[in-house]
Computed example of a mutant assay.
Amino acid sequence: MVGGTGRPDGLEKGYYVKPTVFARVTNDMTVAREEIFGPVVTILGYDSVDHAVEIANDTEYGLAGYVAGADLEKARAVARRIRAGWVAINDAFDFGCPFGGYKKSGNGREWGEFGFHEYLETKGILGYMPEAASSG
Rank of each mutant, 00 (worst) to 15 (best):
Y15K: 15
T42G: 13
L63S: 01
D28M: 02
L126E: 04
R80T: 06
F95L: 10
P130T: 02
S105V: 04
V21N: 03
P39Y: 13
R80I: 01
V40I: 13
P8K: 09
R81I: 01
V87M: 02
E60W: 11
G108I: 04
R80G: 07
D28A: 10
R81Y: 01
E110N: 12
M29L: 07
V17W: 12
L72P: 03
S48T: 12
L72R: 14
G100W: 06
D9L: 06
I55L: 15
G45Y: 08
Y119E: 12
G112P: 02
N90D: 06
K18M: 10
V78H: 03
M129I: 01
H117A: 14
S134K: 04
N27V: 07
Y128P: 00
G100L: 05
T5Y: 13
T26A: 10
E54W: 09
G3R: 01
F95P: 13
V67Y: 03
G10E: 06
F95S: 07
V67F: 02
K103N: 10
C97Q: 10
A23E: 15
H51W: 12
L11C: 08
T122S: 13
N57H: 04
G14A: 04
H117Y: 13
E118G: 11
M29R: 05
E118F: 11
E35Y: 05
L126Q: 02
I125N: 00
D94R: 03
V21M: 11
P130S: 02
T30H: 01
V17R: 13
T20G: 09
S134Y: 02
K74L: 03
